[in-house]
Design a protein around this nucleic acid. Structure first.
Lengths: 189, 189
DNA sequence: GTCTATAATTTGATAGAC
DNA sequence: GTCTATCAAATTATAGAC
């Protein structure tokens, strides 16, 4: 049995690329380093993703899908509205403390002016879908029921902003516990 | 009179480097592109800043100094406390709408795990000094006078986080006006 | 599907002329 | 203080063997 024929490194490549982008940024990642991390040659990365842009889009799309899947249904009737909202904060906490990485789309969002347009589009989609999710979740709370759509949208955007910024500030200051100091009242209404 | 002798491009080099880092990130910037933007050769950039780390530190240090200088004295008795606090929001708004750039230290903060240690240290210093400034400014407000230092520090960190995140979210969504939707109640107490 | 080999370009950095 | 010239290494990407 040949050692490396008919393998499929696609998922491992996405895993390595995601981790590296979330640590170094899109411009800080190279095909060779991804390949080294997976244990293949860079040409194998190009086999699955012909260009860096194509790889970036695939990573961002999968990240967005997984993020929303982990959040679950914002209208989940079996759960308290605040319990649902807390999941956003839990995801950010996990990113910071367990993975010790940025949110992928927080990182890409900072670099957005320099990204291939297809990657920038997928980054935009992440924030659109997450603010939609938050608007729906917030509308279920006692507070949210009495608010206009516009007010809910503002609260959603603020919660997302604070979450992304909190990762940056806590990492910059070198102390993950700072995350706990940064309140997100928008997610407890 | 010789064309380019005895010139001093140091400030222009810092200007170009800052603009480019704020758009592309630290890893997305090269000595040659900075040199091209200034109209010199890359060896002239190395003359002032022998390594990329040295350049990064110089840019971050100047940015921090200018930022705090623009904010002014947080205890300025001639101004209302809320008027003073609003300056943080004004600086972020200017960055987003006029310069169309990230905050330098928001960008560096996202990449902090991959920066030369001296650049990471200066990024940390930016957030430390700014949270100190905010704690002092907040302590002058009617609300702040009644709070503990710990509570003021939390509010300061949240305001900084929301500011950095708002730049990312507004830029990712491609609409600077979104910044106005993101309330920063911490700066109006 | 993975490899070797290689192309064309870019990168951070240095030596030395002026 | 700025330049030309150059280096070794790294980058994205492609061609073609297996």
């Amino acid at each position: 049995m040949p050692r490396k024929s008919a393998q499929n490194y696609e998922v491992k490549i996405l895993d390595a690329a995601e981790t590296m982008i979330r640590s170094r940024g899109y411009n800080g990642v190279s095909f060779r380093e991804i390949a080294d991390a997976v244990g293949v040659k860079s040409s194998s990365v190009h086999y699955y993703y012909p260009t860096k842009g194509a790889l970036g889009v695939a990573v961002a799309r999968r990240y967005t899908d997984n993020f929303l899947k982990t959040l679950g249904n914002p209208e989940d009737a079996s759960k308290d509205a605040n319990e649902v909202l807390e999941k956003v904060r839990e995801l950010a906490r996990y990113s910071l403390k367990q993975e010790k990485l940025m949110c992928l789309c927080g990182m890409l969002g900072a670099e957005v002016a320099d990204l291939p347009s297809e990657v920038a589009d997928q980054t935009r989609s992440f924030f659109l879908l997450n603010s939609d999710w938050l608007v729906t979740a917030l509308s279920r709370t006692d507070w949210g029921r009495a608010q206009t759509e516009k007010t809910l949208r503002k609260a959603a955007l603020k919660a997302l902003s604070t979450m992304e910024g909190a990762l940056i500030v806590a990492r910059s200051l070198g102390d993950p516990e700072i995350f706990e100091d940064i309140e997100m009242d928008e997610l407890r209404v």
